[in-house]
């Protein structure tokens, strides 16, 4: 579904991604783990069109999308829940969800909103509330809901567990598991390597802009190198 081929991304003179190659098949959950500054978020930003690659190709369902404007990419069916959630704190929860469906013109937005809220009952409770008054976990749920509102074929999740208490991290990962069961294709970027590898069909390890390892989530969990570097020995 998504193929990334030899991707090079620079911020000015600094190279953030170096020859990254990976792919995501339909219906899969693929995790990318790595430490701070490895280039995980840069990778997702580049897929979303927020960064331009200098070299390499990104193909989504066969057509090249590198360098395409972000709004066109959303329309093609890739939607992101950005790092740090970035919900619109001065708007109501409902308005946040409406913005998630911004690119859509069909008349099923309302029923989709109901479906999303059935999955996230806490969002329904707070529909008219200003999004800034939500707790961290609720904000993360809202960010995922907002991304789902565009009916994405591929959902990009950037550090959904960031800054959350352990029980909320469990809740968020349960939700990701449920979305996976519903057939949503997910590309997940995480620092919480343990959780990310448990949930993933396949995973990649990113280190200073290079993919250094790839494999099944289960295999990587037991890989001695990964254990030492990311899972605490």
């Amino acid at each position: 579904m998504l193929e990334i081929d030899n991707l090079d991304v620079y911020y000015g003179a600094i190279q953030a991604l170096n020859g990254v190659t990976l792919n995501v098949q339909e219906g899969e959950v693929v995790s990318i783990i790595g430490s701070n500054g490895a280039g995980k978020s840069t990778l997702l930003r580049t897929v979303s069109g927020l960064n331009r690659p200098r070299e390499g190709a990104i193909r989504f369902k066969g057509s090249e999308i590198q360098g395409t404007a972000p709004d066109k990419i959303v329309r093609m069916g890739i939607s992101q829940s950005p790092e740090g959630r970035r919900i619109f704190t001065n708007m109501t929860v409902q308005e946040n969800l409406q913005l998630g469906a911004f690119t859509r013109t069909d008349n099923e937005i309302q029923s989709d909103m109901e479906k999303v809220m059935d999955k996230f009952p806490r969002i329904r409770e707070r529909l008219k509330q200003s999004a800034g008054t939500l707790s961290g976990g609720e904000q993360q749920m809202l960010a995922i809901c907002r991304a789902l509102m565009s009916r994405p074929k591929l959902l990009l999740l950037d550090e959904p567990s960031m800054g959350l208490a352990p029980n909320l991290v469990t809740e968020i990962f349960n939700i990701i598991g449920e979305l996976h069961k519903d057939g949503v294709t997910i590309l997940l970027v995480e620092q919480n390597a343990n959780r990310a590898l448990e949930i993933a069909d396949r995973a990649y390890v990113l280190e200073t802009g290079h993919i250094v390892l790839e494999g099944n989530g289960r295999d990587l969990l037991t890989n001695p190198k990964v254990k030492e570097a990311y899972l605490g020995g």
């Binding site: 959303v74 939607s79 970035r86 704190t89 998630g100 911004f102």
Partner: peptide, 10 residues
């Protein structure tokens, strides 16, 4: 509110 987030919403 947030330019990057709105771009990511399309």
């Amino acid at each position: 509110e947030d330019e990057v987030a709105s771009a990511a919403m399309g």
